[in-house]
Each structure stands twice: as C-alpha cells, then as structure tokens.
Computed example of a mutant assay.
Amino acid sequence: MCGRYTITVTFEELMTRYFIDDPSFDQYAPKFNAAPMQYIPAVIHDGKRNKLGALRWGLLPSWSKEDKNAAKLINARSESLLEKASFKSLVASRRCVIPADGFYDWQVKEDGKHPLRIMLQDGGIFSMAGLYDIWTGPDGAKISTCTIITTAANSLMADIHDRMPVILNRDTEAQWLDRSNRDIPALMKLLQPYDSGQMLAYPVSPAVGNVRNDYRELLHRAGADAV
C-alpha cells in the first residue's frame, strides 16, 4: 500500500518535469511526510495540456451523500478497480498522477515495525498513478479528492510489504494522463509493478509514524542521522 510519501523538490522543478505553464497550486511546499486527508500536488490533463493542482488525499466519490469515509479510500487496488463502485467510472475520464520522490512503508520484524523510505536509484521524481473525483456538498462547495493505485509488490518491495504504489514511467505516464485515451483494457495493462532494479530502500526514523512530523531530517538514513 501507500500511506505516506515525499515530494521534496521545488515548485519550479515540478513545473518543468510535467511541462506545466499555468499552475493552479497557490501554496505549494515540499512534503517530507505527506499523509492522508492532506492536500497534495497532483497532475491531470485537460485535453490540451498538463495541469498541476491540489487534491485532497482520500477519495470522496461524487455520489456520496456526505463527506466521510474518504480516509478509507487512500489506495485503490489495481486488480479490482473495475469492480468497485467508487473507482470503476473514474478510470475512463478522471485519471491523475501524484508526483513523488519517495514513499514510506513499514517492514515487520520480530522486534516490531521498521519504517523505510523507497525511492528511485537516481533520486528523481516519479509518478504514482491515481484517480480523482469531485464532490459537491449541500452548500454547493466542491471538494476535489484522489486515491493512489496500488499493485503487487516487486522483488524489492516483497520483503517489506505485499503491495506498492503503481509507478509509471514517462511513456506510460503520458498514456495514463491522456484524456482522449478511453481504451480501458490498455489502460489497465499500465498498472504493473515497477522495475525493482531501478529502486532502492533504506531505513528511516520512527518519527515518520507521526503525521505531525514533516521536516527534511525525516529523509535521513536511520543510524547515521536519526532524528
């Protein structure tokens, strides 16, 4: 699964990476411990170009009667997307990517759970596949929310957790974002485990377990620069 992640680059780096020329993100700041129910940066395609904005993490389906239970929909299993009422109608037209440069997961050992940060070997930005929806409240206020799609673990993640976020490469990212792409079977085939040879994992401080902690030192390797 994916319950915490990092996006620590500058706003300018995000804009350059996703070819953004008209961002709608007023208060971007790097996140060292992004958590569910927070507003996070996300990229969608409006039919002409990529757009960067903020989505609340935890999907609230447009048909929901009230704003609750979104915290339970932070992840969507790729294998059952087309079977779940909350997700199946979104695959055709409400796809997004969540920019990240790492994510956290907890490895269970005999002495307890140990947090690790997982990232690409080159340390670069990557795109986690997601879905979004827009909910309108009784007062007319709109809330835009998202979920991160997960898939089976690759060989690196297998010793940590049996699930991992779907990470798209540049080619599959473009296909996923393309709003004109309605080929559902082809889109579903994009949701595969990422190449473990291009990833690495290292231990970090247990401080990442507290959602109130959000500072650069959380990225440090535990034991060398523990916080």
Rank of each mutant, 00 (worst) to 15 (best):
I44M: 02
Q27G: 12
L116A: 08
R56V: 11
E13W: 14
K109A: 06
W135L: 04
I118V: 14
D159A: 15
P41L: 06
D67Y: 00
L219W: 02
D21G: 02
M1F: 05
K142S: 13
M1T: 05
F25D: 08
I149R: 12
N169Y: 15
I7P: 00
Y18N: 02
A70P: 14
M1P: 14
L200W: 03
F32I: 15
W135Y: 02
R94Y: 09
M1Q: 12
A100E: 06
A207R: 09
P115M: 11
R117T: 12
R94K: 15
S196H: 10
E83S: 07
M128P: 13
D46M: 04
P23H: 08
R170A: 15
I148M: 14
T6D: 02
V227P: 08
F19L: 13
G102I: 03
L187F: 09
R95A: 14
G112V: 13
A207L: 06
M199K: 07
Q27A: 11
P23C: 09
L52F: 10
V97S: 08
F19K: 08
P193V: 11
S93N: 05
S127P: 13
T147H: 11
A92F: 00
D195Y: 03
N33A: 05
T136K: 10
P23W: 14
G47C: 01
A207G: 04
I118T: 12
S93Q: 07
S205G: 14
W63F: 13
L73R: 08
I149P: 01
M164N: 13
G209A: 01
S89N: 15
V208Y: 02
F126A: 06
W63H: 03
P99C: 05
V97W: 10
L73N: 03
I160P: 01
I7S: 05
N154M: 02
Y104M: 01
Q198Y: 07
A158C: 04
V204R: 13
G137M: 00
R163L: 14
D111W: 04
L190S: 15
K31V: 14
A186S: 15
L218Q: 00
S62Y: 12
G112C: 07
L131M: 07
G123N: 14
G124Q: 11
G223M: 00
P99H: 09
L200F: 10
Q121K: 14
P115F: 12
L120I: 03
N154D: 06
T172Y: 12
E217T: 04
D22E: 11
Y132N: 05
M119K: 04
I125C: 07
S180D: 11
M188N: 01
C96R: 07
A153V: 13
N69C: 02
Q107L: 01
S89Q: 04
S205Q: 12
V208M: 10
P99N: 09
G223N: 02
A226P: 06
N75Y: 02
L52D: 14
Y104T: 02
Q38V: 03
Q121I: 07
L187S: 10
L82Q: 06
D214K: 01
K48E: 06
M119D: 11
A226S: 13
A34L: 12
S80T: 15
S86R: 00
D67I: 02
G58V: 11
N75A: 05
I149H: 03
L60N: 06
D195S: 03
T8E: 11
L120V: 09
A152P: 06
D139C: 09
A222V: 01
I160E: 08
R216D: 11
Y5P: 06
M164T: 12
D171L: 05
R17I: 00
K109N: 09
A76G: 04
